[in-house]
Design a protein around this nucleic acid. Sequence first.
DNA 1: GGACAATTGTTGTCGTCAACAACAATCTTC
DNA 2: GAAGATTGTTGTTGACGACAACAATTGTCC
Lengths: 164, 164
Amino acid sequence: MTVSATRPSPNKRAGNGTAPRIDADEIGLDALVGHAGYAVRRFQIWIFQDFIKTLGDVDIRPTQYSVLTVIGANPGLSQMVVAKRLGIERARLVHLLDSLEQRKLVKRIKSKSDRRSHALHLTGQGETALAKFQRLAAEHERHVEEKIGKANRERLLQILAGFT
Amino acid sequence: MTVSATRPSPNKRAGNGTAPRIDADEIGLDALVGHAGYAVRRFQIWIFQDFIKTLGDVDIRPTQYSVLTVIGANPGLSQMVVAKRLGIERARLVHLLDSLEQRKLVKRIKSKSDRRSHALHLTGQGETALAKFQRLAAEHERHVEEKIGKANRERLLQILAGFT
DNA sequence: GGACAATTGTTGTCGTCAACAACAATCTTC
DNA sequence: GAAGATTGTTGTTGACGACAACAATTGTCC
């Protein structure tokens, strides 16, 4: 990942339709560097891929993990509240919960105070499973530390704390 | 977006299926805080939405912008090289270029040195358009500054420089 | 108390995007 | 020249965000 090499002049033989050998590493991205969105997108892709790989054996994706974590920490929430808190659409949460309920990790209990809504709980199986997921997630977090450095990870969390 | 309030105790009347009033702001996310991936995902969603809104009048999305920028800075590249450099699949880049070519922003020129590949160039129209897009993108970048602070944005770019 | 609006979960569609697989045309290598 | 690799293309799959519509239920207003 060497990025600090001196860039050759940005325009190399343009206009005739052909271009000399280029190694895809040495392409001028000058105009893209300095855009926060681009850096964040690439980092987000990397971090999700590592999460998915690290939790690959248990087949849990980041969104599923966030749903389980919120339900585990706050049993009895309605789907509406969970969706709002996580920034997920409630239509999308329906499918997520269908999947998690089929896997016996979550159960929907009809609320008696509001018969429209469901109170969400982890099953016993769900709680032990979540504990394992969290251990794996911690391992993933260590990968992040190795990638960008411990201090930088801390700083990152600090900068983005307002978005959680 | 007040996040700094003291959290109430995480478990509020769990187990009977119902839960007291909850405002979706005050849900314990304790277990999710500290996960870099979650913060980055939320931030990335915010930043893309602002980009899309800011460049809404010209109808340019982040990926399209990155493709135009790379082609503009390095005319004559093949699709393979552009895809690799931006982390896009070449299958996906085909559709992106189809769209950009229909809008007369990009042209595919058959390479004579390798008749399989296309040399990518901006049209004249594409160059003037890109200049406008970059002005709007700079405006978007100012929105990011207002959101997280100028110094934090700088630090963020520094931390994530390895991913560009 | 009853009409009307709002909310909750659900179903469905649409468009974006990453990940694969397969294919024809073309290049490279031996 | 034959075998294998590469390039662009087409297609499929699945996760995901955005929207719209709907039935059941709750809340509100008169």
